[in-house]
Amino acid sequence: MYDAIKERVKELLDSGEIKGFLALKNDNGNIKPHLYVSPVETNQLSIGDGETPGGARYPLAKILTILLQNHSGERFGILVRGCDQRALKALAAWNQISPEQVVPIGVACPEERAQACACALPYPDEWLEGEQVEPKDPRPVEWEEKIPLERLEVWRGEFEKCIKCYGCRNICPMCFCKECSLESEDVIAKGEIPPDLPMFHLVRAVHMIGRCVDCGLCEEACPASIPLRALYKKVNNIVETRFQFRSGIDQTEQSPLHKIVEPPAAI
């Protein structure tokens, strides 16, 4: 399977065009990220078909960011789904990676996966495997129609489930800061569970402004099943309404936070 991808990766590795290819590997039924550096390994390449087609996902763009930091000047290939490519574009817009160092090889997500994710763009710009599946509108957000008091009740209940594992931050391809406010004791008290309500989650939400590419890995990773994606979807909607910007679409367009503007008379 995926012969087109394997062939292309072999070519790239053989010609020395890339130093390695970051993708997934099926290791006795376990799917995990792997950096392919030799053409002979590529028969183990996986595009993430676990229990369901395309079911296994990893923040490959995040791993690539770290790889590139440690191998300046080298080029790497990477397997990209729609979400991975959005993350790469957003990372480039935030000057975290240089697009010249990245050779993306695309795969379109299978229908089942795209549906499960309600993905806004379940395919990258170009792909070698898979079929184009109809995208979904990323804008509708749960509970938006409820009255404020009910929304407060819902979100307080959700935030209260947090066990402060930092899973959402650790898996997020757009969480690239060297120092994290969520670890600052001035912002979030140490040793308290749940973490300060609603500070912990709002700090993270505000830091998603102009970053979040709606990949949904945070919600997948959350052991407490907090609907984090709904929260960040709302952030993305607010950013779009106020600044006409969506992250991960144009890698040359900087986020609204990079632009110096006159503060509005009333905020």
Binding site: E144, P148, L149, L152, E153, V154, L202, L231, I238, R242
Partner: peptide, 8 residues
Amino acid sequence: DLLEFIGI
């Protein structure tokens, strides 16, 4: 806007 969304 986000505070309004979570009901504050």
